[in-house]
């Protein structure tokens, strides 16, 4: 049974249509497998080979991978939630209630989005500290560390803007408390506060603004920086291995890298 399924799948992979999409072919040779990475617009960000040592759980705890995983969950659940949500007052709250009481599995979607958001913030922090303690920020990976810091801020902003959307007491006052901090900036404080909320108070304008940020601007920015982050792993010499590299290695001219 399993064998026949595998055969069907093999046949599918041999078909013209499949070949037109995936050009790497069906071989199991190193060449084929390298092509599978190189000829895919998304996968070509990664190197075709990875040091076997880096597959160990202890090396990375897979924290970067898992953070990206939560991001994917958030995009999927977020898009589904957008189908049921109006960013207006007080409809936003009624929509949240409808998700809970009327929409099939709506509550599950909202739960998953919420808990994944918390998980992502936790994982981003964990990833950052893991990278630091392994010393993986060292040259030539300085810039990728900076991108990581940017992604940390983007994650916090994504979570923070999403916090307001249910328009309940928790959301309203968390955003009020959080945004009031911005008012403390010398000279420009109130202007920044106004810019953030689209007014002096958390109201319908703030909700719309946070919605656009949460569903459009910040996810796009996050995709952009995640792309760079992944690509720079390859460009900076693959995943950092403590033992193989001397402590103060200087950046090497491009092209001398093996992979």
């Amino acid at each position: 049974m399993a064998k026949t399924a595998a055969e069907y799948f093999e046949n599918l992979r041999e078909s013209r249509v499949w070949r037109s999409i995936f050009r790497s072919g069906t071989g199991t040779s190193t060449l084929h497998r390298s092509l599978a990475i190189q000829q895919n617009i998304f996968l070509h960000l990664f190197s075709t080979k990875v040091r076997r040592r880096m597959l160990n759980f202890s090396a990375t705890w897979y924290l970067g991978t898992l953070t990206f995983g939560t991001f994917v969950i958030l995009v999927v659940t977020g898009i589904l939630l957008m189908l049921y949500y109006h960013p207006s007052v007080p409809q936003a709250y009624a929509d949240t209630k409808d998700l809970q009481f009327v929409v099939s599995s709506g509550l599950f979607l909202r739960n998953l989005d919420r808990w994944s958001a918390h998980a992502m913030v936790l994982l981003v922090f964990a990833h950052m500290f893991k990278v630091f303690y392994r010393g993986a920020y060292r040259p030539p990976r300085e810039f990728n560390w900076v991108i990581g810091v940017v992604l940390l801020l983007l994650t916090l902003l994504l979570s923070y803007t999403g916090y307001l959307l249910p328009w309940d007491q928790l959301a309203f006052w968390a955003i009020t408390v959080g945004s009031n901090i911005a008012s403390a900036v010398p000279l420009l404080g109130n202007k920044i506060h106004f810019l953030l909320l689209g007014g002096n108070l958390v109201n319908a304008n703030a909700l719309l603004r946070f919605y656009v940020l949460h569903c459009m601007i910040l996810p796009l920015a996050a995709f952009f920086f995640i792309g760079i982050h992944f690509w720079r792993i390859r460009k900076d010499g693959g995943l950092y291995t403590q033992q193989s590299e001397p402590a103060a290695v200087r950046p090497q001219p491009v092209g001398k890298e093996a992979q």
Binding site: A94, K97, D98, Q100, F101, V102, D168
Partner: peptide, 15 residues
């Protein structure tokens, strides 16, 4: 009124 569970519809809840 919007609730469709006994607990949420009748009693005082967090929400």
């Amino acid at each position: 009124g919007a609730a469709t569970t006994v607990e949420e519809a009748h009693r005082s809840t967090l929400a």
